[in-house]
Simulated assay, not measured.
Amino acid sequence: MSDHAGTVLGIDIGGTKMAAALVSADGRIVTADRIPTPTGDADQVFAALAELIGRVLSEAGLAAAGSAVAGALAAGSAGIGPLAVGIGSAGPLDQERGLVSPVNIAGWRNFPLVDRVRELVGDVPVTLGVDGHCFALGEFWTGAGRDVSSLLGIVVSTGVGAGIVVDGKPMIGQSGNAAHLGHVVVDLDGEACACGSYGCVETYASGPRMVARAKRRGWRSTEDVDAAVLSADAAAGDEIALAVFDDGAQALAAGIVATAVTVDLTTVVIGGGVAKAGPVLFDPVQRWVKRLAQLPFVADLTVEPAQLDNAGLIGAARLGWDLLPPASTAHRSGSASG
């Protein structure tokens, strides 16, 4: 039997990249690939995703190298393809109907992602979750949260996404969009957000918003720079960069504490591109959390970096594993279910 048999296909879709991987029952990535998220209309974006899926299956030896997607998935129908498919997508989404409308993928509005993927994979279960949920579930399963029962996972990147696992189960919500921490309002007089509201966490803590705020204050205002450059300057002691990171950290901390006192949890894991800034982000976040978390049941609230590079992929695959009967997952670690 192929080493890749008995795996679930995880798919992670964001505004910057699309990734796919075959993941074993113990959360190990067997083979993976990624592409930049293309621009274009709905079908052009999906065609790129379909090609990526086919390539991952081919790389795993589930179809002849270079074969068409249809050929790769036909191999799956012969019993050597993925057992299920879990998809994590930027939101918002309609989980019940399998529709996605990612803010940062203009071509997809009420796009029937689950049905389109199901057309590719044939007669295997397919499920969908918000990318932040998948990040949290991945870290809970095999990452920084594997020794706790509940956690809040946050992705700080071009936006701010989040997911919550409570007593081993992802908190999904009525529509599948629970834990949109990036759109918790922390400043009633704040800047307009892409969601239509004002003063959201994302307007202060996302990478592009921090860069824009720093430029308005005179930091490298004529240069083409990104959050990585901003964090490097902050680490070197640049006062504007440090002040902007402190603003972002305060907003994140406010969202974290609001979530913690609502859900009653004490473990927070932060990942994403901006989190790679390290102490430049985590030191002020921890300082603000300590200042804001005054109720006794959140007094021990901890914030730590993510441990996984592919938490979203692993969490998406976990959603797929949780669709399968216990006999298929008897040796799987953890106890979450979707």
Rank of each mutant, 00 (worst) to 15 (best):
V186L: 00
V186H: 03
V186G: 00
D187C: 02
D187A: 02
D187F: 02
D187L: 04
D187P: 06
D187V: 03
L188M: 09
L188P: 03
L188C: 07
L188I: 11
D189P: 04
D189W: 08
G190S: 05
G190C: 01
G190T: 02
E191Q: 12
A192Y: 05
A192G: 00
A192H: 07
C193R: 03
C193N: 08
C193V: 10
C193D: 06
A194C: 07
A194W: 06
A194D: 10
C195T: 12
C195L: 11
C195Q: 04
G196P: 13
S197W: 08
S197V: 00
S197A: 15
S197N: 14
S197T: 12
Y198Q: 14
Y198E: 10
G199P: 00
C200H: 09
C200W: 08
V201S: 00
V201A: 04
E202G: 01
E202V: 04
E202C: 03
E202T: 01
T203D: 02
T203F: 01
Y204I: 00
Y204C: 00
Y204T: 00
A205H: 08
A205N: 05
A205T: 10
S206C: 13
P208L: 11
R209F: 15
R209Q: 14
R209D: 03
M210P: 12
M210L: 07
V211W: 14
V211I: 13
V211N: 13
A212H: 10
A212Q: 14
A212F: 08
A212T: 13
R213L: 07
R213E: 10
A214D: 08
A214M: 08
A214W: 13
A214Y: 07
A214I: 04
A214G: 06
A214E: 06
K215D: 08
R216N: 14
R216K: 12
R217E: 15
R217S: 11
R217W: 10
G218Y: 00
G218I: 02
W219K: 12
W219Q: 03
W219E: 11
R220K: 12
S221D: 12
T222Q: 14
T222H: 11
T222R: 05
E223R: 13
E223H: 11
D224P: 07
D224E: 15
D224W: 07
D224I: 05
D226W: 06
A227R: 03
A227P: 00
A227D: 10
